[in-house]
Amino acid sequence: MSEIKEIAPNKLVLFGVLGGLLGIYLTYLFPVLGMKIGGNVGGLLKVIAPTFGALGGICAVVWGADAVRRVSKYGLGTGVPSIGQIAMGMGIVASMFGIAIMAKFPLAGPVVSLVTASIIGLIIGWFAQNVIKMKIPVMVRGMTEIAAAGSLIILGFGVAVAGNFQFETFVKMVFDDGLILAVFWIGAVAILHPFNATLGPDEKQKRTTYLAFSTGAITMTIIGIGAIMTLGLSGAITMMLGIILWVIYYKKFWDEVYKDASSVLGTGLIPKTEA
């Protein structure tokens, strides 16, 4: 088998962390800028701000899906979905902690969430490797990355619904109306589905990554529908952009599938009687 050039894990970590945090912070920054500029441009900035949270969430999904891919390649014994669920479990604990403990200095919230998630992931990874003895060499690093990505997914898509990451607003807009469960579940599926669907000996990073973009975009679309309820117009923009991104990346994934398959044939239906 020829060596296929893959994107280095470190590059994807940078993409996820920087993209995710940038998206989350832009939702905070744009309304402030909008206030200063005023007029129509200011208003527009304010309306499109929450959409950037969802875009940051997609960056985190892509990173998380690649981390899931690296860990699950070794075979977990329990199926890939379990790792997506533990990612969201760790992510939700850490992100709530981050924004709650920094309620007085909300700007530090996302970073504190990311750091807390990494620590929780590191500890769980260490236990999985050394106490449960899973014998997966990348377990500690993988768990750390997955937990961190999980917290950024919760925050990114949560911010797209709430409009900002202040604890009071976040609790009122995301928790009280139950949208957090949508963020939790669809986020989990977004992170676990790409590898779960493409796994096997001929799995390729490019194909999995395109699928991760498309599941991220689906999450964005559904979160957009939720955000119409809480934020109105901003939610509609999130939803529309989500649909556009989904179509683009699903087409790319589709093309990748056709490229990787040796040939694609229509076989017709199974004949009713033996020939």
């Binding site: 379990s82 533990i86 969201m88 479990g89 760790m90 939700i92 769980i124």
Partner: peptide
């Protein structure tokens, strides 16, 4: 929601 989070960690 926090319970759900802890639940998932402890069941995985």
């Amino acid at each position: 929601v926090f319970t759900v989070g802890v639940f998932y960690v402890n069941s995985v």
